[in-house]
Simulated scan of single mutants.
Amino acid sequence: MTVPIASKAVPAPSFAHLARLTDDTGLFEHARHAIPRRQHGYCTDDVARGLVVTSREADPSDTVLRLAECYLAFLTHAQDGSGAFHNRLSHDRRWTDEPGLGDWWGRALWGLGTAAARSPAPWIRVEALTAFTVAASRRSTALRAMTFAGLGAAEVLRGDPDNTVAGALLSDAADAVGMPGDSPDWPWPQPRLTYANAALAEVVVAAGSLRGDERRLVAGLRMLTWLRDIQLTEGRLSVIAVGGWQPAAPRARHDQQPIEVAAFADACATAASVTGQPDWDTNVRQAVAWFLGENDGGTAMWDPTTGGGYDGLTPHGPNLNQGAESTLAFISTLQHARSPNRPAAMRGRVPVSV
Rank of each mutant, 00 (worst) to 15 (best):
F264E: 06
G348K: 04
P351R: 12
L75W: 05
K8E: 15
A48N: 06
R138Q: 14
A176F: 03
V288S: 01
A252T: 10
P258R: 00
L210F: 08
N295Q: 05
T114W: 01
D97Y: 07
M1V: 14
D175C: 09
V274S: 02
A135Y: 07
R285N: 14
Q277Y: 13
G102K: 09
T314P: 08
W188H: 09
H30D: 13
A206L: 14
D162G: 13
P122I: 02
P278A: 13
A219N: 06
V203W: 03
A267V: 03
D160N: 12
A16W: 08
A267G: 03
D59T: 15
T2Y: 12
A173T: 02
A115T: 00
P318C: 05
S183A: 13
W280V: 04
L200G: 10
M223G: 05
G152M: 05
L292D: 02
T299D: 10
D97E: 08
F28L: 10
G298C: 11
T114I: 04
P161R: 09
A34S: 14
I230L: 10
N163S: 11
R342D: 12
G208K: 03
R49F: 04
W123N: 15
P4E: 06
D103P: 10
F15C: 03
G309E: 00
V64C: 09
G308H: 03
M346Y: 03
P304I: 02
G111D: 01
L292A: 03
D45S: 08
T299A: 14
D182Q: 13
A324T: 02
G111M: 01
R56C: 12
T130H: 15
N283D: 15
W188M: 06
G178L: 01
D97V: 09
W123P: 11
G212P: 07
W123R: 15
L21R: 03
A267N: 00
P161M: 07
I259A: 04
E325F: 06
L169P: 03
G293K: 05
T306S: 10
S7Q: 14
V203P: 07
L200H: 13
F85K: 02
Y42V: 09
T25C: 09
F85R: 01
S90F: 07
Q286R: 15
A174S: 10
T25Q: 13
T54W: 01
P315C: 04
G83Q: 04
G348W: 09
V239I: 13
E214F: 11
I124D: 01
V203M: 06
V218H: 11
T305F: 11
R66H: 12
V126G: 12
F74S: 02
L75A: 08
W188S: 01
D162E: 14
A19W: 01
A263M: 09
T25W: 11
A337P: 00
T76H: 06
L232T: 11
M223P: 05
A207S: 11
L112S: 05
A344D: 13
V218P: 05
N319P: 00
R93E: 11
G298M: 12
D103T: 12
A324Y: 04
A149M: 07
V205L: 11
A128T: 07
R228F: 03
L200P: 00
Q256C: 08
R94Q: 14
E29Y: 12
T299V: 15
W105H: 05
L143W: 07
Y71N: 04
A265L: 03
L157Y: 05
E127F: 08
L313V: 04
